[in-house]
């Protein structure tokens, strides 16, 4: 059993600085493993322990993305693949093309796991694009995955519905964060992860005839907040009474 898990070195939105003109400083911003990717890695590890096999963590990005790959290795992935690309300059379709090519190159995979979307841009496009490009069945927004022999049963969490689907292997799945609680690597695991192999692939060589870049950012500005920020003081009873009074005055109670 071979499992691939796709991870993204995403901009940490909590650390993202806004300059004096209201523009976010995306270049050189602090990165981290996209929050929900931890659930994807955890699920790959869980499936590996249930059926035994190998977990390959794959990322597309610059040299800084190694940090995220190493985190996946520290959590327990067996080896890593980094596909070089300027992640801020490529769009979702190119990312999916690079991941699809990298997965194909690493050898046959039984399950490809992604998170539902990255915590920075939250497009949620790469997992279904990946399935489309690989020609594999896709089960998105999984909250439970059970692999049994050559097939799998997946519980998909939709807006108002739980849909249980059955698919043959290999397939691509995206997971929601309810599916598991990601483990924290121990210090020993973090140290040992530096010995695990990381393969580098050159993105430009990997997909030479890809789709040209389609979407581009026209402008970015910090979200303006028009909140009043009134702090209500006093004892709990006083503060509560003032709050209720203010809310009645605002016409929302």
């Amino acid at each position: 059993m071979r499992l691939a898990v796709c991870v993204k070195h995403a901009i940490d939105e909590t650390e993202l600085r806004i300059d004096s003109s209201g523009k976010p400083q995306v270049d050189g911003a602090v990165g981290m493993m996209s929050t929900f990717d931890k659930n994807a890695v955890e699920e790959a590890l869980r499936l590996r322990s249930a059926i035994s096999g190998e977990v390959v963590a794959i990322t597309v990005g610059g040299p800084e993305a190694r940090k995220t790959l190493k985190e996946a290795l520290a959590m327990g992935a067996d080896r890593g693949v980094i596909v070089s690309a300027d992640i801020l300059a490529i769009d979702t379709l190119r990312t999916a093309e690079l991941l699809a090519a990298a997965i194909t190159k690493t050898g046959p995979c039984d399950v490809v796991i992604c998170s539902e979307g990255s915590s920075d841009t939250y497009d949620g496009q790469v997992p279904p694009m990946l399935a489309e490009l690989l020609g594999l069945p896709y089960a998105g927004y999984a909250r439970k995955i059970e692999v049994d022999g050559g097939s799998a049963k997946v519980e998909r969490s939709l807006e108002d519905t739980i849909e249980v689907v059955e698919t043959t292997l290999p397939f691509v799945a995206s997971v929601v964060s309810e599916i598991n609680e990601p483990r924290y690597p121990t210090l020993i695991q973090i140290m040992q992860s530096s010995k695990k192999p990381i393969e580098e692939m050159n993105g430009d060589q990997l997909v030479q005839q890809g789709t040209r870049k389609q979407s581009s950012v026209v402008s970015m500005a910090a979200q303006s907040s028009s909140r009043r920020h009134v702090m209500i003081e006093g004892s709990p009873d006083e503060a509560a009474a003032r709050l209720v009074e203010a809310l009645v005055k605002d016409g929302v109670l």
């Binding site: 993202l16 950012v217 026209v218 402008s219 970015m220 500005a221 910090a222 979200q223």
Partner: peptide
């Protein structure tokens, strides 16, 4: 984008 911190066009 960025969890609602930024609006992008």
């Amino acid at each position: 984008v960025y969890a609602g911190k930024v609006v992008a066009k």
